[in-house]
Design a protein around this nucleic acid. Structure first.
Lengths: 138, 138
DNA sequence: CTAAATTATCATATTATCATGATAAAGACA
DNA sequence: TGTCTTTATCATGATAATATGATAATTTAG
C-alpha cells in the first residue's frame, strides 16, 4: 500500500512521537531501534525536516525532533512526501474523462472507495496511531 | 494504485470485452489501439491466457479471446496476477500483531478502509466497467 | 509441402526504487 | 582554537519493474 520509504518515514515519526521527551534523537539510535539502514533513514529524516515535519540540529547534542504536536500531524503530511497519494483517486484505467460527470457507474463506485482511502490519511493523526493497547477486555 | 502492468492487463481485457465479436483479436491491433508496447503486451496477454482468463490461438487466424463472460469476470481475477492485492490489508506499519485483536483504534479504521478496496476488486466485474455513458441527463 | 501470419519464448536494455559507503559541513564544548 | 559528534550531501551499487528486440514454434491457407 505504501512504498517502503513512506513506511519508514511513518515509523520514524511514530518513534519520535513515542519517545516523548524534548531532547533530539539521533539517527543512529532510531536506525538501530527500527531496523532501518542508517544512511537511508538519514536521507528520509532530512526530507522530513525540509518539509517542516521535523526539526534537525547538528553537532554534539544534535538529532531530530517533531516540529508539530502529534495531535495536529496528519499521516498525509508525511506520506505525501514520498508517495503520490492523490494519484489513487483518478480513474482506474487512466481514462481522463472519468474525472467528470461522464464516469460510468463502476468508476463512480471506485472514486468513492478511493476517497475513503484519501480521507483516512488526511484525518488520521500521528497521535491516533500512538494509542495502542487500548483497554483490552479479557 | 495499480501497477502499470496490472492497468495494462485490465485495459486489454476491457478492449476484448468491448470488441464483442467472437473472433480472436491480434496483439498488434490491441497494442496499437491501447498504445501499449507490443511485446510487453504480448507477455501480459500470455500470462492472462495461462491463468485461464483468456484463450489464445496461434497461427494465421490466431489471437486472443475472453475465456469467460464479462459478467462473471471479477477485476480481482485479473489484477491479482500482477499486484499483491491482499498486502494492502495488513498493518500500515508492518506491525505483525496488528492483525489480531490487539490492533489500536486507528488500525481498525485502516483495515475497514482496506477491506472496502478489496471488496471493490472482488465484486466489480469487467461488464460493470463496460457500461459507459449511462443515460446522461441534460 | 510451402509460405505467411501469429503467439511463445528468450535475451537484453532502461528506469525507478531501495540501500550502502564515504566525505563534507556545522554545532557543542573543553 | 581544536576536537568530537552529528547531520548534510554525494557517489555508487543492488534489485525489481518496465520495456524492447530477435528468434522459435505453431497454425492456416493455398
Amino acid at each position: 500500500m505504501l512504498s517502503q520509504t513512506a513506511e519508514y518515514a511513518l515509523r520514524a515519526v511514530l518513534y519520535l512521537a513515542d519517545s516523548g521527551s524534548d531532547q533530539p534523537v539521533r539517527v543512529g539510535e532510531m536506525a538501530r531501534a527500527l531496523a532501518i539502514p542508517q544512511n537511508y533513514l538519514s536521507k528520509i529524516l532530512h526530507q522530513l525536516a525540509r518539509a517542516r515535519v521535523l526539526t534537525s540540529n547538528r553537532g554534539k547534542l544534535g538529532g531530530f525532533r517533531l516540529a508539530v504536536a502529534p495531535e495536529s500531524m496528519a499521516l498525509a503530511q508525511i506520506v505525501v512526501l514520498f508517495d503520490r497519494l492523490d494519484e489513487r483517486r483518478r480513474c482506474l484505467l487512466g481514462r481522463p474523462q472519468c474525472s467528470d460527470g461522464t464516469a460510468c457507474a463502476a468508476h463512480t463506485r471506485w472514486k468513492d472507495v478511493a476517497e475513503r482511502v484519501s480521507v483516512f490519511f488526511r484525518e488520521t493523526t500521528v497521535a491516533d496511531l500512538l494509542q495502542r493497547n487500548p483497554a483490552v477486555p479479557v
